[in-house]
């Protein structure tokens, strides 16, 4: 049975998209230009994601295969092509944020966020690369204030999302 997820619906409607979403007329241009739909048509379909989000149907939560939302390569071509100026990728960000908050989604994402929380950088500085920078005549990369970064990310509750 299909049930409406009101939390999803509220978040989607709240995501800075004005009221454009309801003007989606399922023309399929987004899916036509999507590079992932082109190579995996049975697994990824932005048009379907927009319809489901608008109706408040959460297609991928709790599913084993969530490529249906995480397969997006975030090329932003659909946003550009949509005749109704729907910012599809903003909606997909809502879906992904919900997926992560529910403890789902590919490891890559939480691992990277965790590194940023710990070091302030997605790729922390390392001695071998520092030496290489020196050899190439490059200045040191200035280090960010990590305690400041962590304070910010505690207020946004990223620490809770990442179980820190």
């Amino acid at each position: 049975m299909v049930s409406v997820d009101f939390e999803l619906r509220k978040k989607v409607m709240d995501a800075h998209i004005g009221d454009t979403l309801k003007y989606c007329y399922q023309c399929n241009r987004c899916t036509d230009v999507c590079p992932v739909s082109q190579i995996a048509p049975d697994r990824y379909n932005p048009r379907g994601n927009i319809m489901a989000s608008f109706l408040g149907i959460n297609l991928f939560m709790g599913q084993k295969d969530n490529f249906g939302i995480w397969g997006c390569t975030v090329c932003d071509t659909c946003d550009e092509i949509c005749p109704q100026k729907i910012e599809l990728t903003e909606i997909f960000t809502v879906l992904k944020n919900m997926s992560i908050a529910a403890g789902e989604g590919p490891d890559y994402y939480t691992t990277q966020a965790s590194t940023i929380y710990d070091a302030g950088k997605a790729i922390p500085s390392q001695p071998a690369i520092e030496r290489r920078r020196e050899q190439l005549g490059l200045p040191k990369v200035e280090e960010p204030d990590v305690s400041e970064v962590q304070k910010i990310l505690n207020v946004t509750k990223l620490n809770k999302i990442l179980n820190k």
Partner: peptide, 16 residues
């Protein structure tokens, strides 16, 4: 003294 930008594909997908 900049921190990670942060990544528009990775970090934004975790928490906007």
């Amino acid at each position: 003294p900049f921190a990670c930008c942060p990544d528009p594909v990775g970090f934004n997908s975790v928490d906007h």
